[in-house]
Amino acid sequence: MTPVYETWEAARGAEIIAEHSKMEGATLPILHALQETFGYVPEDALPMIASALNLSRAEVYGVFTFYHDFRAKKAGRHVLKLCRAEACQAAGGDALAARAEAKLGIAIGNTTADERVTLEPIYCLGLCATAPSAMLDGRLVGRLDEARIDALVSEAQR
């Protein structure tokens, strides 16, 4: 299922920020909500967060860049995350990751030129007893083998 995102509009952004700004420590909930709505955190939103929370722009920018989850621009149409942590390594995950990279023609951490697929590492989905595992647009897949990773990659390319 391809996630559907709204196009950035400052008024919509302001609405989301206002919805969360009364929470204790609201920065992360706001960044999450913006990314869920728009697919990334638009640069224009950062000064708006700063003024809503009475923080400096630098502080908000610092938080935004600290966490691996937050994106400065949209990902590809599909995001394929491969678990690269030890349990998946032990179960043969390295070779499968290399296979996915070769099939897509990109290294992990990149998006294909046609902007269809973003391939990302993830450090542990907590599916360590059904390793190796992956997540395609929020759907979990365990017990990966060559056939399953090939199927996931083709699904992502569609």
């Binding site: 942590a85 030890e86 349990a87 998946c88 450090y123 542990c124 907590g126 599916l127 360590c128």
Partner: peptide, 10 residues
């Protein structure tokens, strides 16, 4: 619970 190999919390 970020440790690889753990999933009890989840």
């Amino acid at each position: 619970e970020g440790d690889s190999g753990t999933f009890a919390d989840r």
